[in-house]
Design a protein around this nucleic acid. Structure first.
Lengths: 163, 163
DNA sequence: AATGAAATCGACCAGCA
DNA sequence: TGCTGGTCGATTTCATT
């Protein structure tokens, strides 16, 4: 974040509306956004550029469907570590680097990491768990299988609009 | 998914390379992709269109930075339900609809749902938890605060390339 | 599936409020 | 600083192979 936008106060209504739109769908033309926001195409472009440069917009990405890749086995694993050595950013990164691991959170409380894994089948899941316990400092793991991904598409602007 | 791409076998190397690129960064020119894949710009465009239409590419979205919105409080909550009535898709959807709730998974085992919540402060977090326990059928909740989001940017192609 | 040409759209710039 | 309008280059579309 090079400049501007240190707090939410730096956004006007048009910015918020723009962000809400493009967080949901960026596969639209400038004309469409221009119509919706009732500002000129150039102005839309100007605001987008500014937010990209400032880091408010981290990037533009394609959201893929896991189904065609048969990535339909998902598990959530609690990982406990032995609290000997200095702290566990190291272990967190090693967990994150395992193939199939999608999300890693370092948490307060009885367990240290929550890990979400997505793979194609039980064999791959076993491999992932094996790699977790093989990490130096990992003490114990406990996994739950996900039967249904009710919601897994974070949209910050939804959370923010409650303010 | 209207046609094609029912299994991973329907993708050739170029498709996989293309998907790997755009899942990470779609803010690139056709020329860049054309160079990288060593096919013509039109061919890139053709493949992209096909994958959008077939649903392999679910959409193009902007990835936003939570920091400017001060959405830096994250918690993971285990939700248990009373298993009386018919099943709990209903409860899952109600959890998903709560403002601030980002992810909801229906899981096997001792708890029924894992919920990830992102809000601005403790007050908002309390509100969210209140709304969870207020849902009819919700029995018990247990929350852990997230100290560090080690990894939270799912990339299917990373998981897939292990195959 | 892929190509090349024609039509459309987006990126960039100088200038203005 | 935010925006405008115009130019140029990039993208989309389509007939063709």
């Amino acid at each position: 974040m090079t400049k501007g936008y240190s707090t939410s106060n730096d956004f006007d209504e048009v910015d918020l509306k723009l962000l809400t739109f493009i967080e949901d769908d960026f596969d639209v033309s400038l004309d469409e956004l221009s119509d919706e926001l009732e500002i000129s195409k150039s102005a839309v472009h100007y605001r987008l550029n500014k937010m990209k440069e400032s880091g408010v917009i981290k990037g533009i990405t394609a959201d893929l469907n896991p189904e065609p890749f048969e990535l339909d086995m998902v598990a959530i694993t609690e990982v406990s570590v032995t609290h000997e050595k200095g702290y566990s950013t190291d272990i967190g990164n090693k967990l994150a680097d395992i193939n199939g691991v999608e999300q890693v959170y370092y948490t307060m409380g009885d367990v240290d990491f929550m890990v979400l894994t997505r793979v194609q089948d039980r064999n791959q899941m076993n491999e992932v768990i094996d790699q977790m316990v093989a990490i130096d400092g990992v003490n114990e793991t406990s996994s739950r299988f996900v039967m249904d991904e009710v919601k897994n598409n974070p949209k910050f602007m939804n959370n923010f609009s409650q303010e």
